[in-house]
Design a protein around this nucleic acid. Structure first.
Lengths: 206, 206
DNA sequence: AAATAAAGTGAGTCTCTACTCCGGTTCGGA
DNA sequence: TCCGAACCGGAGTAGAGACTCACTTTATTT
């Protein structure tokens, strides 16, 4: 299971009774398969392909996720959660500046590999009102955990103070997107990261 | 006709005899419609919708562009050309630094509105070998004209010297993409631009 | 082990969209 | 004005993908 893969909850979306063992297993397989396939082909990949990769019949996919949109959403939430977890694990680091830039590097690199995720991430920076329920909660959580990293780095004077979380998320998404197309070219990757990082540093006082 | 809209050539793709008057007119209408529709809905918008907007039957669309891909490509080239033209018109400016950043602002802003274009642009920064014929030529042309702007700004010590055209194009595409999602939020837009611009400036010598 | 409810299966339906085809229309030159 | 070539129209074809459902299989309970 890849690092960013979403975890199966063990209960269905309605929070009803516990799932049967085979159902829980299949739900995980589907989520993992979807995560992998979406990462490469984007959310337009067919449900059939995901079912095949999960070694499950297509009916099973639709039993767990009533629409394709629901499946995409579930994968989306899984990735947001994973990223928020990473941010949180760096929140207590001794050097706020280093923690901040380490997180950025990792976030961009992961989003680069997971093609779709850059788009998903970009959404997270924006209008929260467009979402509701679980997605909105995941976004709020991510914004909060990244906000903490950012705030600490700003207090330590390692990051300019005139940007907020949403701008930062937009920047991450943008850099990931830019690099995504340039895969196989480390020069472009390091160039984009370098420019973005330098732009985030506080201006040198005259 | 919007600024970035592709121009109709007046001749068909093969460069054969001149088109009949009605054919030339319809070709222009189709390209304009496609440009407008793709800008909003991306290249997955249906050919039918484009035909309707152009007030033309769908058969006419396929007479001019044998596949949908060919239509997308034509619009793509039109936008690359428009952008290259803008770069060229700024190439002789007195202040290379101002010209450079003015171009960036305009390029990002346009790509922001034209949703698809950010992706197209990103492609332009990358592997040229993936394209052939007219597209490759348009890409080369754009790289060349942007390269000139960049080179002059670097010589004037207004832009750091350790980035090349392809990295720059990736940055433009990334910024446009980031901002695209955050439309309606000028704070994010100016923040992203500010960070990117500052990151592009040469480091202050110690 | 039998009963029962839950889950899995996959062929089939429905919708959407790229693309075709040929009869009717329009253009432009003689 | 007249004719042939070029062009246009839009119903129709083919294929892909989301989603359904009647039936079979499996997990869990008693």
């Amino acid at each position: 299971m890849s690092p960013g893969a979403p975890a199966a909850s063990g209960r269905d979306a309605q929070g009803g009774r516990p799932l049967r063992a085979d159902a829980r297993r299949n739900r995980t397989r589907i989520l993992d398969a979807a995560d992998a396939v979406f990462a490469v082909k984007g959310p337009t990949a067919s449900t059939e392909e995901i079912a095949q990769r999960a070694e499950v019949a297509i009916g099973t996919v639709f039993r767990h996720f009533p629409t394709k949109e629901a499946l995409v959403e579930a994968v989306f939430i899984g990735r947001l959660d994973a990223l928020a977890g990473q941010a949180r694990s760096l929140a207590g680091a001794a050097d706020p500046g280093a923690a901040f830039f380490a997180f950025l590097t990792e976030a961009v690199r992961q989003s680069t590999i997971k093609h779709t995720f850059a788009d998903a991430l970009a959404d997270a920076g924006v209008d929260l009102r467009a979402y509701e329920g679980a997605v909105a909660e995941a976004i709020r959580d991510l914004q909060q955990s990244i906000g903490e990293l950012l705030g600490r780095a700003q207090q330590a004077a390692r990051v300019r103070v005139d940007i907020d979380v949403r701008t930062l998320i937009a920047l991450i998404a943008g850099a990931a997107h830019a690099i995504g197309f340039a895969s196989q070219d480390p020069a472009i990757e390091s160039g984009v990261l370098s420019v973005t990082f330098d732009g985030l540093r506080p201006p040198v006082s005259p």
